[in-house]
Computed example of a mutant assay.
Amino acid sequence: MNSEPIDRISTNQTVMFFVNFIFGAGILILPRTITDKVKTPDGWIAVMVSGLLITLLVFLLVMLCKQYPNETYFQFTQKIIGKWLAIPLCIIIIIYYICISALEVRVMAETTRLFLLQGTPSWAILIPFLWIGLYIVLGGINPIARILEIIFPITVLFFLLVIFLGIGIIEIDNLRPVLGNGFKPVLNGLKTTSLSFSGFEVILFIFMFMKDKSKVSKSIMLGIGIPFVFYTITVVAVVGAFSVNGVLLQTWPVLTYIRSYDIQGLFVERFDSLLLVIWIMQIFATYIIALYICALGMVQVLHKKNMKPFLFGTLPFIYIIAMIPKDINQTFTMADTIGNTAFYLFGIVPLILLVISSVRKKLNEKM
Rank of each mutant, 00 (worst) to 15 (best):
L116S: 02
N174H: 15
I280M: 14
Y292N: 02
K37C: 07
M208H: 02
I150G: 00
V19E: 07
P143I: 06
P5Y: 14
I125G: 00
E4Y: 09
T234P: 10
G166F: 12
L187E: 04
N20D: 14
I93N: 08
I94L: 11
P325N: 06
N340R: 11
K211G: 08
L130H: 02
T192G: 02
P5R: 12
G140R: 13
I324C: 01
F115K: 04
A124E: 14
I220E: 04
F200T: 00
D42Q: 10
I154G: 00
I144D: 08
Q250L: 15
Y344L: 13
I352A: 07
F271Y: 14
G43T: 10
D262Q: 13
V254G: 07
W84H: 04
L351D: 02
V254T: 10
A295R: 04
T155M: 15
L134P: 00
L315P: 06
I81P: 05
I151Y: 07
V49D: 10
K191Y: 13
P253N: 05
Y68E: 06
T256A: 14
W123M: 12
P185R: 02
I321Q: 03
D36I: 01
A285W: 14
N245W: 05
A25M: 15
I163R: 02
T333H: 07
P143K: 04
I98E: 07
P69S: 04
L30F: 13
Q300E: 15
I206L: 11
I289K: 02
P227F: 09
I328G: 00
V186E: 12
W123K: 05
F343R: 00
F209G: 00
D327L: 08
E171Q: 14
Y73H: 10
V254D: 13
S101V: 05
D42E: 13
R146Q: 12
T40W: 15
L179S: 01
P128R: 08
I226T: 01
Q250W: 11
F159P: 02
V299T: 10
V162H: 06
C90S: 14
C65I: 07
L138S: 05
I324N: 01
K215G: 00
Q75A: 06
G168R: 13
A124Q: 13
N20A: 12
K215S: 11
T11L: 10
L148M: 12
G139K: 12
M307I: 09
L148A: 04
G313F: 15
A295Q: 08
S357I: 09
E149M: 06
I172T: 06
F158P: 06
V202F: 08
I93C: 08
T155E: 15
S50N: 13
I203M: 12
K304Y: 10
T40V: 11
F159A: 01
V58G: 03
V359G: 00
I321W: 07
G240E: 11
P31N: 05
I125P: 05
V178I: 15
T193N: 12
M307D: 01
F197P: 10
I258D: 04
I91D: 03
L315T: 05
G168N: 15
S273M: 15
I324P: 03
D36C: 00
E104I: 07
L179E: 09
D173G: 02
T331I: 09
L351I: 13
A322M: 12
F18G: 00
I141F: 07
I288T: 01
E269Y: 10
F18L: 07
Q282H: 03
M108T: 02
